[in-house]
Design a protein around this nucleic acid. Sequence first.
DNA 1: CAGCTATGCCAACACGTGTTGACTAGAGTG
DNA 2: CACTCTAGTCAACACGTGTTGGCATAGCTG
Lengths: 201, 201
Amino acid sequence: MVVGMNDVQPPARRSDATRAGILRAARARFAADGYQRATIRAIAADAGIDPSMVMRYYGNKAQLFAAAVDVDLRIPDVARVPRDRLGETLVAHFIRRWEGDPADDALLTLLRSAATDESVAERLRGIFREQVAPVALAVTADPAEAALRAGLVATSMLGLALCRQILMLPPIVAAAPDVLVVQVGATVQRYLTGPLGGVLP
Amino acid sequence: MVVGMNDVQPPARRSDATRAGILRAARARFAADGYQRATIRAIAADAGIDPSMVMRYYGNKAQLFAAAVDVDLRIPDVARVPRDRLGETLVAHFIRRWEGDPADDALLTLLRSAATDESVAERLRGIFREQVAPVALAVTADPAEAALRAGLVATSMLGLALCRQILMLPPIVAAAPDVLVVQVGATVQRYLTGPLGGVLP
DNA sequence: CAGCTATGCCAACACGTGTTGACTAGAGTG
DNA sequence: CACTCTAGTCAACACGTGTTGGCATAGCTG
């Protein structure tokens, strides 16, 4: 085994461990405190290095945030899911991810900060456009209808994330995943495949 | 007409106009920027007075926030609403409030700040417990079931508020109120009066 | 008018923030 | 070994924050 395992782009610098440590600490802090409250000093302390290293490797706080929060919802391929199971499948997917390590889920981090930072909100809208909207397009061909359906789904899913993982609303935190999958899943299902009432422009 | 019109508690100080001005500016700033980003200096500037006056009249920033954000959802009396119209009625009620002046709605202000400030989140949970949960209790006698139903309703309503007023998700912002009332109203209706599947402990 | 109190402004403190630059050790290379 | 470049620390700057105390002024009260 030679020194360079991945002889593609990065020349495998000696500081890779530190960089990774910074990124790991940043993810945790941003997830726990949001963009503004998470300080470079705290992140550096968690990573066990000097704050100036963060600046050297990531430029500034905004770029560190961008690097730390890479959002891939990993939405399952809707083509492989029975049409009448879409709602349950999607809700189960997200709950399972949050169950693992909420501090590791970029979506929750973004949601926390998007409430007060417009630039983060813009980024969330981008995620919606590129990763959520396509799901609705697999159900309807009409773009306007698909956009509305996707928006309603976002309403439901983000509302669940907000109440369960951020606001910690007791009944929703205590609810068994199965119950939420059935109830919220039914809502998402209706938003995706149910009637809209023909009120589209 | 004598000097004191309301001769009850407050002796009608001469600085009442200033106090009100501070409160008005604080409401706007907190609604627009959230708790942390809204600065005492900015609020004082908006009110046209010195920052130290804010401290004199309201003690500190936290107390100013508490004074500025008084939350009365003014949920309509559920007893006067037909049981099968609860969902639509509730959604229409909230949308109508936001339509007016979002910066004046305390719920949105709280929602913005609750994402990053635990104490604000705790306050939101209080609002939920005292103003939302009772609605579900008017539908079911069982407290555990009522709590779950109220939680699901919160999921739906806060998700809508989040996407429409805070994240500004294009399809939800563009959607006509009627459409949202019908669609989200149906969801709330089912959460309140629909079957739960008997999975309650 | 004299005196007191409420109302307001000004300047400053103490602190935490992101960010920068100079400087030290230490590995890698000729 | 001598030289170079990287990884890292330290101290400090410039700024914005909440908060405080002192001082002027205007209005009310005797």
